[in-house]
């Protein structure tokens, strides 16, 4: 049985402008120790879909569908039951390590409370475990870091602290939402390697949320591309990158400048850009949300949404085209 099974997940926000479905018809499953990347641009609903797993979409959100962890339905669980899952079964690392840490409290206090409050450990035992965890995420001189405030740490170290806090509960699933976006490229490489090593060492499943296709390749086995709140394409990472079935995935891969194997060579004069800009989630008409930007648009694209259907083994794609472009 899959560790996490998401079926037909939807997230709808209502305000005085009306209802906006920002995530629609999202289904995937993740095995214990497996890894999935959800890729999308801003407004694609990727973050809301991750927040929905842990009941974090907020009081104005209407979450539909089903999210099962080890067969147990998570949607609609009462708050105390959710608190048992958050941090202990599913943990999350957020994008901006500065705003996720409390600026008024020392690192030590923010780490140990997880263990003293949730697991009832004594202060001493919690401290020992936290120091071990800081070492596991390769932070030098952990006992000194323990007494520091977040502003005294660099961005990379802060993100390591966030990862350490997330791992304290020994979660079965780590959700990482754009964990390296705020970081420099060399520090990003360090954090990616750390996440990959920890995943292997602790055997936890990883759900990576990102806009950067480049990050996916080394860290995850499976990728799900989202566009305007809906799934566009899913499959094993190397398959999807080598032979993408959806025009959007294809466009994304082509529009990013790449150094390739011979960076000394001159690049092409122009990039193959996708025209237009992504719609806000929930803004799409009756047809395929990508149709207005799609080079292969034809009759049915404007009339009805393509189904997210299984093709060729383990892959799925939502496109009216009979054969890939």
């Amino acid at each position: 049985m899959a560790l996490l099974d998401v079926r037909d997940l939807s997230v709808t926000f209502s305000d005085h402008h009306g209802r906006r479905r920002v995530v629609d018809g999202l289904s995937y499953s993740l095995d214990a120790g497996g890894s999935l990347a959800i890729v999308g641009e801003s407004g694609s609903g990727k973050t809301q879909s991750a927040l929905a797993l842990m009941g974090l979409c907020g009081p104005t959100a209407d979450v539909g569908g089903s999210v099962r962890l080890d067969g147990r339905e998570l949607l609609g669980l009462p708050w105390p039951a959710l608190q048992q899952i958050r941090g202990q079964r599913i943990a999350m690392v957020f994008q901006d390590p500065m705003t996720s840490l409390n600026p008024y409290r020392r690192i030590g206090g923010q780490m140990t409370e997880m263990l003293t409050l949730r697991k009832g450990l004594s202060a001493d035992a919690a401290r020992t475990e936290c120091l071990e965890m800081l070492e596991a995420v390769q932070i030098g001189d952990p006992s000194n870091r323990f007494t520091q405030f977040p502003h005294e740490l660099s961005g990379g170290i802060r993100q390591r602290v966030m990862i350490a806090i997330a791992l304290l509960g020994r979660p079965d699933l780590l959700v990482a939402d754009e964990p390296t976006t705020a970081l420099d490229v060399t520090v990003q490489a360090q954090i990616l390697r750390l996440l990959a090593d920890l995943r292997r060492a602790m055997g936890m499943a990883t759900l990576l949320i990102t806009h950067d296709l480049g990050l996916v390749a080394g860290l995850c086995d499976e990728v799900l591309v989202m566009y305007a709140g809906r799934p566009a394409e899913q499959g094993p990472v190397d398959d999807v990158f080598a032979r993408s079935l959806h025009p959007y995935t294809r466009g994304l891969l082509h529009s990013v400048p790449r150094l390739g194997r011979d960076p000394g060579r001159a690049p092409p004069a122009r990039l193959q850009a996708i025209t237009g800009s992504p719609p806000a989630a929930g803004d799409a008409g009756p047809g395929c949300a990508f149709a207005p930007r799609c080079a292969y648009r034809f009759g049915p694209c404007d009339e009805k949404q393509p189904e997210f259907a299984a093709v060729a083994g383990s892959r799925r794609v939502a496109c009216h085209l009979e054969s890939p472009p």
Binding site: I157, Q188, L192, R193, A217
Partner: peptide
């Protein structure tokens, strides 16, 4: 060389090389 090695690339199915420490 370290900067170039750290770039993640969808065509490369391994993790980028790591430079220790920070600026």
């Amino acid at each position: 060389r370290a900067l170039l090695a750290a770039i993640p690339d969808p065509a490369r199915l391994e993790l980028p090389a790591v430079l220790d420490g920070e600026v």
